[in-house]
């Protein structure tokens, strides 16, 4: 099981353009694929609709999907899940929903596959955006919220420390890779 964290460019502007209230919703993002090597097209990831339906049926209404043009079908034994976006305000205001979301995904995909699942989570911290890349057994998905909140706390601690030292360059340390067996 591996969970890799990297700092990424922001996507909130794109979500805003789609008219989605990102502070109140988990956002399921489409995937960009290349068409004929010259242009790109946005498509749904293969599991996007399933995740949206699963969460809504289990009472999590705060889910929005940005629709792509068609769905990129996957035929691997391992399951590639779509990218999910969590705004900082949503993470801080709705910890229960975040935890339950990943528990539901862990339960559902544990039944679906004995192989691995991969998932990318884009999340805001106070002043940065992070991408969490998870790859491992479906059961391990339920441990992601802890890592998410740990990361936010780390960043907040770093910010406080930087203020104390009157360092005002706004830089954040290079991303770390968290790997566990």
């Amino acid at each position: 099981m591996s969970l890799e964290v990297t700092e990424v460019e922001s996507v909130p502007e794109y979500i805003d353009q789609e008219g989605i209230d990102q502070d109140s919703n988990i956002v399921i993002l489409p995937r960009e694929i290349s068409v004929d090597g010259s242009s790109t097209r946005l498509v749904d990831a293969d599991e996007s609709s399933t995740i949206q339906k699963l969460l809504e049926q289990e009472g999590i209404a705060e889910v929005e999907k940005i629709d792509g043009e068609g769905t990129r079908a996957e035929f691997g034994a391992d399951i590639a899940l779509p990218s999910l976006y969590f705004a900082l305000e949503f993470i801080l205001e709705n910890p229960d929903i975040v935890v339950v979301t990943f528990e539901l995904l862990a339960i559902y995909y544990s039944r679906r596959t004995s192989g691995e699942v991969s998932l990318s989570i884009l999340a805001e911290s106070d002043d940065s955006k992070y991408e969490f890349e998870y790859e491992g057994p479906a059961k391990g998905l339920q441990e992601i919220p802890d890592k998410l909140y740990d990361r936010i706390e780390d960043v907040e601690d770093e910010s406080v420390q930087e203020e104390d030292e009157e360092i005002n360059d706004g830089a954040i340390e290079e991303p770390s890779e968290l790997e566990r067996e």
Partner: peptide
């Protein structure tokens, strides 16, 4: 081998409706 496909419609095998 694995095919690369874009699927414009998935049908549900239980109800026959649009899976989405």
């Amino acid at each position: 081998v694995s095919p690369g496909l874009i699927v414009n419609t998935y049908e549900c095998s239980i109800c026959g409706e649009d899976y989405d």
